[in-house]
Amino acid sequence: MQINTDDAILSIHLLVVPHLQASRARLFKEYKEVQREKVADPDIQLVCDDTNIFKWTALIKGPSETPYEGGIFQLAFAVPEQYPLQPPQVRFLTKIFHPNVHFKTGEICLDILKTAWSPAWTLQSVCRAIIALMAHPEADSPLNCDSGNLLRSGDLRGYQSMARMYTKLAAMPKKG
């Protein structure tokens, strides 16, 4: 196969170089911001991978007065090169029973991570949005059909006890 060097150069020029730089710069800013905000938001702990600035993890506290209270949930962020023009991919690493989270993969169904994304969002504010989603599940666009069905059918207690059980099993430090 012959590679057309002109095209290759053009596409690098157009797509890769500026965004990579822009996304790095922006992530670096966020990194500094996070260091500063750690004290300010005790519910979120964002950590950047030592070797790869495009990989982040976060520990978030389950919101109080929800079945997730007392749990610590780990999120994994994969940031695309075109960040912040394109949203990061986020999923739960900790098992969670929630109608908008895929039970097996931890994938999250949240509009701001898809169509409603705005470059003005940050990793930190995404974490906040996820905490808000934990407190206010949307039963109408469920990734976890079981919990979605429980909620939709009005079985709030069934949903809560399942969610509570999984929080205890997976998101709480083992005692003893």
């Binding site: 157009l14 797509l15 500026p18 965004h19 822009a22 075109q82 023009l85 394109q86 470059p119």
Partner: peptide
């Protein structure tokens, strides 16, 4: 302007 430009470039592409 830089961010606007990036945004436009991505959308046009």
């Amino acid at each position: 302007n830089n961010c606007w430009t990036e945004h436009f470039v991505v959308k046009i592409n």
